[in-house]
Design a protein around this nucleic acid. Structure first.
Length: 517
RNA sequence: GUGGGCGUAGCUCAAUGGCAGAGCACCUGAUUGUGGUUCAGGCGGUUGAGGGUUCGAGCCCCUUCGUCCACCCCA
């Protein structure tokens, strides 16, 4: 028979086999129990959602990695995470529940990224969300819960990294930077830390050429301060976006100027306005970058890092509310007294999902290769409910573990092989299958894993197969047994066998197996 | 998106430019009702695809597809 081209699994998708499968399930089950013991109720959510759910606030990089498509004129997407779905479900069905609400979930998610070691396009997230709770107590509960799950799995050697997105974001906003620019900077904290300010500016120019003038070191228009157009520009700068927009539109109208019909008038005005405002972004941008550089250096032991951050905040005349809250969270966390991993503060920490509004944290483990691997991420997202159309804003936070990664961390520690067929029933001839199936049924009813050999090989081969597949006991039913409704029960370890009435088979097998322990 | 590695039997992989091989798996027999071993044999290939160089290409060159890994980012 001519064989057609082989169909392989899609890139980034994985087949999970016996030992690894068992390990992943075990991890999932233990975590579910752990979270349940803390009052987090499991719920199940759709894998397919309206694409819009992920576009509202997840951030561009998530959007770019979405598996999304049109299906019968609807935009749908495979979920890249579950927090958005949880909140969607909350807004849709759970707004009358008493708060705080504790929920857990587990299931596959999809992200179209380049696959590599410990990174796949489909993977499993298990997580918890604490809805309707604010303040350091709630923050500490979630962190402690996330760490507790690791301990529950026997992982005591891990690193907890805590950050706070408000410290940087509120500073950038207070500076009066354009929103686009703020978002860009938030995304590039890591970049700045690794490659320096120049690299960030270069990348800014590449992505947003309209900020070109803001990124050049010297301002060319310094001596144009008193020209009439400059006065007009200064006036516009003092207005809000809406006011300025209206002013320009009215101005053009009053002069009876018509704008090229190919372009939306509003768009032209918008661009003009943007151009006018960029010029003043330069100095602010430099202050922002300097602040980021210094903030990014603050990482390490919590008390010291926090003190340095407070000093930095004072230097830049920043109110330290976020830092105080962080300090209280750390105090609350200490009260639990069961964090056995290393704790580190990192003010440069910033996560890919852009809906975080306060606390953010990650858990890392070390693989046997010595390589660090992130196995959990989470944080606070107080405005996500209102973004998703909830009646009123609600404080909320949560975290999620990457199950495959957790399992790979445990792989080194303990690799319990899954049990294969415990009992194998071998019918010798065609006429013996009915009896064999009946015997197997009895055994399974008692919870004993049983396979029936259906290959139709001779007895020698069948026994060999049963043995190689790890059978503990073999039941042979053939011509000799047929007459008196018996079966031959063979112990594969002791190589001893005894005839047993088929009616008594299940009970005898159960006794033998329980004697094994 | 950037940079590497690898595509050879069902699977894992060998093969200084010179007869395409091994292990595992599968099948048969030694053994027609007694297993992990052993032995004998068998099945199995357009060397990812297409083009080029050469007397000769699995090997060198170009193109393309697939895949793994690193950077980026993340779980």
């Amino acid at each position: 028979m001519p064989s057609a081209d082989k169909i392989a699994a899609l890139r980034g998708m994985r087949d999970v086999f016996s030992a690894e499968y068992a390990r992943q399930r075990q991890v999932q089950e233990r975590l579910e129990r752990h979270l349940r013991l803390h009052g987090y109720q499991p719920i199940d959510l759709p894998i397919l959602e309206n694409t819009e759910l992920y576009l509202r606030k997840s951030g561009e990089d998530i959007a770019a990695r979405l598996y999304q498509f049109d299906y019968r004129s609807r935009r749908v997407a495979l979920r890249p995470e579950l927090t958005a779905s949880i909140l969607r479900a909350y807004v849709e069905h759970m707004q009358d529940e008493p708060l705080p609400l504790r929920i857990q979930y587990s299931g596959p998610v999809f992200r179209y990224e380049k696959p590599q070691q410990n990174r796949y396009r489909q993977f499993t997230l298990s997580g918890a969300e604490l809805l309707g709770a604010k303040g350091p107590r709630a923050d500490a509960e979630i962190i402690n819960l996330a760490c507790g799950g690791l301990e529950r799995l026997g992982i005591r050697d891990y690193q907890l990294v805590i950050g706070h997105s408000d410290v940087l974001e509120s500073f950038l906003q207070a500076l009066g930077l354009r929103k686009q620019l703020v978002n860009f900077l938030l995304r590039n904290m890591e970049n700045l830390r690794k490659r320096g300010i120049d690299a960030v500016i270069a990348s800014l120019r590449e992505i947003y050429p309209e900020f070109e003038s803001a990124t050049t070191a010297t301002s060319a228009s310094a001596d144009g301060e008193h020209t009439q157009s400059q006065r007009l520009i200064n006036l516009l700068r003092e207005m809000t976006d809406d006011e300025a927009h209206q002013a320009i539109t009215d101005f053009l109208h009053s002069l009876n100027i018509r704008i090229d019909a190919n372009r939306e008038q509003g768009e032209v005005v918008e661009r003009l306005l943007q151009k006018i405002r960029e010029d003043q972004q330069g100095p602010k941008l430099r202050v922002a970058l300097e602040f980021m550089r210094r903030l990014g250096e603050l990482a390490g032991e919590p008390t010291a890092a926090l003190r340095q951050a407070q000093a930095l905040a004072a230097d830049f005349k920043l109110d330290g509310a976020a830092l105080d809250a962080l300090g209280r969270t750390l105090d609350c966390l200490a009260e639990y007294g069961d964090i056995s991993g290393d704790i580190e503060l990192d003010f440069g920490l910033n996560r890919g999902l852009h809906y975080y509004t306060g606390l953010i944290f990650e858990l890392h483990c070390t693989l046997e290769t010595g390589e660090a691997i992130q196995i959990c991420g989470g944080g606070r997202y107080d405005n996500l409910v209102s973004i998703l159309g909830g009646g009123e804003a609600m404080p909320a936070l949560g975290f999620a573990y990457g199950i495959e990664r957790l399992a790979s961390v445990l792989e080194t520690a303990k690799g319990a092989a899954p049990e294969a067929g415990t009992v194998c029933v071998i019918p010798v001839a065609e006429g013996d299958f009915a009896s064999a199936f009946a015997a197997a049924k009895d055994l399974r009813a008692r919870g004993i894993t049983t396979e029936v050999s259906i290959e139709g090989r001779n007895l020698s081969r069948s026994l060999r197969q049963a043995d190689r597949r790890g059978a503990r006991l073999v039941i042979i039913i053939g011509e000799a047994e047929r007459a008196d409704q018996s079966a031959l029960l063979r112990d594969m370890r002791s190589r001893q066998e005894q005839p047993i009435l088929q009616a008594e088979l299940a009970e005898t097998v159960e006794e033998l197996l329980s004697a094994d322990g």
